[in-house]
């Protein structure tokens, strides 16, 4: 429903066919940001080697839903459980999309740029904004909070009252063309745990 309250334009009803497609990121994992309480030393999300507690997150390979968007966590993989962004190029199932949803977290809040590569060779740069994973951080960019754990893992202990936060952020695809790839930022502060592509479909409008 689109409000016309301020413009005097009557509200419109629109019908769209939304599809949501989790992306397999196998082959890109390069960081272990989640650890079990029995082995906190295996994690190293940030420079202090803190990590998310596995006990409070979905298991590897699980499908989760955040604000209606399905994400799939990476399966067990010796290479890690997330992508620490270092300019990787991620090939996508070619198609027309409207949003790229990301399960993400940052070692301090930051913003950078992703490059969207289209089938015709066009490239659009779009902002990627991610809030801090550290305790008491807020959604500085209006993201949805995906997970907030009651403890933080330190290399040698489990720390109560220091929460770890993971966010659901989205990047717009404004070009009406088939998307085929995504260049992640060269910014090691940003970590990516899952990605889902959304096609909102073209609206079919009728006067209500």
């Amino acid at each position: 429903m689109v409000s016309g309250a301020k413009t005097g334009v009557p509200p419109l009803s629109v019908v769209t066919m939304t599809t949501l497609r989790p992306v397999d990121l196998t082959g890109h994992w390069n960081n272990r940001g989640i650890s079990a309480a029995a082995g906190t030393g295996s994690g190293g999300f940030n420079v202090w080697r803190n990590s998310f507690p596995a006990e409070y997150l979905p298991p590897p390979g699980a499908q989760v839903e955040v604000e209606g968007v399905p994400f799939r966590f990476g399966g067990p993989d010796p290479a890690g459980d997330n992508i620490r962004c270092a300019g990787q190029y991620v090939e996508l199932p070619e198609g027309r999309y409207d949003w790229i949803h990301l399960l993400t977290a940052a070692e301090r809040r930051t913003e950078d740029t992703v490059a969207l590569h289209f089938a015709g060779g066009e490239v659009d740069f779009e902002p990627l904004r991610v809030s801090d994973f550290w305790a008491r951080a807020h959604a500085a960019f209006g993201e949805a909070k995906a997970f907030e754990t009651p403890v933080m893992h330190y290399p040698h202990h489990v720390q109560p009252r220091v929460e770890a936060l993971m966010w659901s952020q989205r990047v717009p695809v404004t070009r009406r063309a088939p998307l085929r790839g995504l260049r992640l930022p060269r910014n090691v502060a940003i970590h990516l745990f899952a990605m889902t592509l959304q096609t909102a479909g073209e609206p079919v409008a009728e006067r209500s």
């Binding site: 420079v47 940052a106 070692e107 301090r108 809040r109 930051t110 913003e111 950078d112 904004r129 060269r186 910014n187 090691v188 502060a189």
Partner: peptide, 24 residues
């Protein structure tokens, strides 16, 4: 403030090999 994150965290992680971190 957000641009400082890129500088600080890249520097922090790059200490073991400063020359490799120089381009970023």
């Amino acid at each position: 403030a957000h641009a400082w994150t890129g500088v600080r965290i890249t520097a922090a992680h790059g200490r073991s090999d400063p020359a490799a971190a120089a381009p970023d």
